[in-house]
Design a protein around this nucleic acid. Structure first.
Lengths: 199, 199
DNA sequence: CAGGTTGTCGACCGGTCGGTCGAAAAATGA
DNA sequence: TCATTTTTCGACCGACCGGTCGACAACCTG
């Protein structure tokens, strides 16, 4: 018996593998096409093994979300702390969000599928709109702080925050649809739009 | 034998009824929860009857999309034609889009579920991202026209169009999440944000 | 009333789903 | 070496899916 919370090397490797396979399946076949059998087939292994390592499909998909989330937060935090001034902080946030989206299209489309479709046993959505609410209020705080410091104009911070988050959330699909799109270029243009909105 | 394209009174009533039931089911239980059996149960009728009147689940859901679409276009066109000048046209478009979203939350969430999930027999999505593309280019045209007329500032019309459409597409969820939200109020605030972006 | 059309029903079909189970292989450790 | 644990397999389960089918009721029309 292993002590709780400890995962063997094989265990960790398998979990990484299945998370990766689930991510690819979500991206290529969508939520409905991502069955345990489909994930297992990608990993060239029996379906039971996936259940053995994760316990349930829900746990597997939650692991996917956590993996992607964990890969995004550090970069964003670093970019934010490097910026000085409220306007620079806001634009740094937008910029890093665009660059991350450009570099992680597949992952973000996958978690999007999970957010919109994964349901608890009782039928309720696993990830509600309230989760995204935190992201909006975060931007809203940036805007409010900037307004109080006099760096921004007189607009409704809530509305502008919603618009900014909506634009960011739409990015994965944009990058997915137009493979020619250039991350830094989009970042510059979106920063300009945000800059205009907040003057 | 009825002549083609003619639907009996009962036929029309049934189709309206099933479209309405499918719409409610999509709104409350999501795409995955909207089976033929679920729709039939809402209508308190046998599952076969739904298939009898629509032929397939896909046809039923396409009818839902067409119904919602048909209810939106006339209002939008009327609002656009009533506006004079490029800036007024753009803001009228945004305003009517917000008001429509506020009044048709359930319908728009339902078609969103269909857009993101309905697949053809071969597995490909029934409604691709290319459909939404038309909406973006429509806004882009409004912006370009206004720029050429000197009513707008010097920004990238494509980017701003994407931002505007993203904001509009996010509205159903916003109205769904916050029942206190006031349509006209949101319209005014979003128009202000758009106005700032395009100056 | 007779005969065909339209509408409704419930049983049923093949298939897929998430998940279970017992057996066996592989790794581990005394 | 051998007992124990960890990992893998494939058969299997019940539930539900979209859709079909034949019987039958309801309704029109002559």
């Amino acid at each position: 018996m292993r002590s709780e919370g400890q995962l063997s090397f094989v265990e960790q490797a398998r979990r990484r593998q299945f998370v990766q396979c689930a991510l690819e399946s979500l991206h290529e076949a969508g939520f409905a096409g991502t069955s345990l059998a489909a994930v297992a087939q990608r990993a060239q292994i029996s379906k039971s093994v996936v259940v053995y390592h994760f316990g349930s499909k829900q746990a597997l998909l939650e692991a996917v979300v956590e993996t992607v989330y964990a890969s995004a937060v550090p970069d964003i935090m670093a970019a934010l702390e490097a910026a000085e001034g409220h306007r620079e902080r806001l634009l740094a946030y937008v910029r890093i969000a665009v660059l991350f989206a450009a570099d992680n299209v597949r992952s973000l489309i996958a978690v999007g599928e999970i957010f919109r479709n994964l349901r608890r046993p009782d039928g309720a959505l696993r990830y509600t709109a309230a989760d995204g609410e935190e992201l909006i209020t975060f931007v809203e705080e940036l805007l409010r702080d900037g307004q109080e410091a006099g760096e921004f104009g007189d607009f409704d911070p809530r509305t502008v925050a919603v618009v900014i988050r909506a634009a960011i959330d739409a990015l994965p699909d944009r990058f997915h649809l137009d493979r020619e799109l250039d991350g830094p270029d989009v970042a510059t243009k979106l920063c300009d739009a945000v800059d205009r909105m907040t003057r």
